[in-house]
């Protein structure tokens, strides 16, 4: 990156320009712009069907955009496959939990360490010293991550045996294990009670502060959004309605209208 570039985009981690996609005749996302700075905790909100999850799917390569560009930390990742985008530094959780439900909790995290701790198939089958060394390091790293989410005590349980709230946490833990620059959380508090939501807020803040990552989250729970997000983008019918500091956005007349109607 040149010096001039640094001045304009030095602190920008994610730069989305004029992103758009249509399904059939429906413009699900249209002319979407977003700039997120490194270390920010950013919220994406909007009524049901506004296109929030579609944007996540565009950012993670599940859908290829019809128009626009996605720049992550200076690299163009527009239209790349999901795997490449994860390697480039975006990890996500899902609105409806997607865990590796038959694997133990620890293996869910170890699977996510896959690209950071390597050994070949031959090492795996013949159990060379490299195998033992790497597996040990993976175990330690996985336990370290699980500890943050208070899941270390249930490391040997099958993922499907965990209660709902802890499954959500495990999903975040798994995403964090890929060491993302940008973490996308799709409705992390969905289905949680106020107590669990409060804990989750603490965890999200802790993750941002301790794992050197930036977080973009979709959420309906306004308490969580106003409690932890520094900036917000409000989406309505696939278009940006309002963008800015959390307080300003939430007190904007148009935003209130979009949520509550006339």
């Amino acid at each position: 990156m040149s010096g001039a570039d640094k001045n304009t985009s030095g602190n920008i981690l994610l730069d989305v320009e004029k992103l758009g996609i249509s399904f059939g005749g429906l413009k699900a996302v249209d002319n979407f712009n977003l700039k997120i700075e490194k270390g920010e905790l950013y919220g994406l909100i909007g009524p049901n069907g506004a296109g929030k999850t579609t944007i996540f799917n565009l950012l993670t390569g599940v859908y290829k955009p019809d128009t626009g560009r996605i720049i992550l930390d200076g690299a163009d990742i527009t239209g790349k496959p999901t795997i490449e985008i994860n390697k480039a530094g975006i990890a996500r959780t899902f609105q409806n939990i997607r865990l590796f439900s038959n694997l133990p909790v620890i293996d869910n995290v170890k699977a996510a360490l896959h690209n950071h701790y390597r050994y070949g198939l031959i090492h795996g089958i013949f159990r060379t010293p490299l195998y033992y060394r790497t597996e040990k390091a993976m175990d330690e790293k996985a336990m370290e991550i699980l500890k943050v989410f208070e899941l270390d005590g249930v490391a040997d349980y099958k993922a499907s045996q965990l209660p709902y709230g802890r499954q959500r946490k495990l999903e975040i833990a798994r995403a964090i294990a890929t060491e993302p620059k940008l973490l996308l959380l799709d409705e992390p508090a969905a289905g949680m009670n106020p107590q669990e939501t409060h804990e989750l807020m603490e965890t999200i803040k802790f993750v941002r502060d301790n794992f050197d990552t930036t977080i973009l989250l979709i959420e309906h729970d306004m308490k969580l959004v106003s409690g932890i997000c520094e900036k917000l983008t409000v989406l309505n019918f696939g278009r940006v309605l309002k963008q800015g500091e959390t307080y300003d956005v939430l007190h904007d007349a148009e935003v209130i209208k979009a949520y509550l109607g006339d």
């Binding site: 795997i83 994860n86 997607r98 699977a111 690209n115 089958i125 195998y131 995403a175």
Partner: peptide, 24 residues
């Protein structure tokens, strides 16, 4: 019980999630 086997089983359990954490 290896890294590769874990990846295979992760893909079996949830293909979309497996891709999202960078498994081919």
């Amino acid at each position: 019980n290896s890294r590769q086997g874990r990846a295979i089983m992760a893909i079996r359990d949830n293909r979309i999630a497996a891709e999202s954490i960078g498994l081919s």
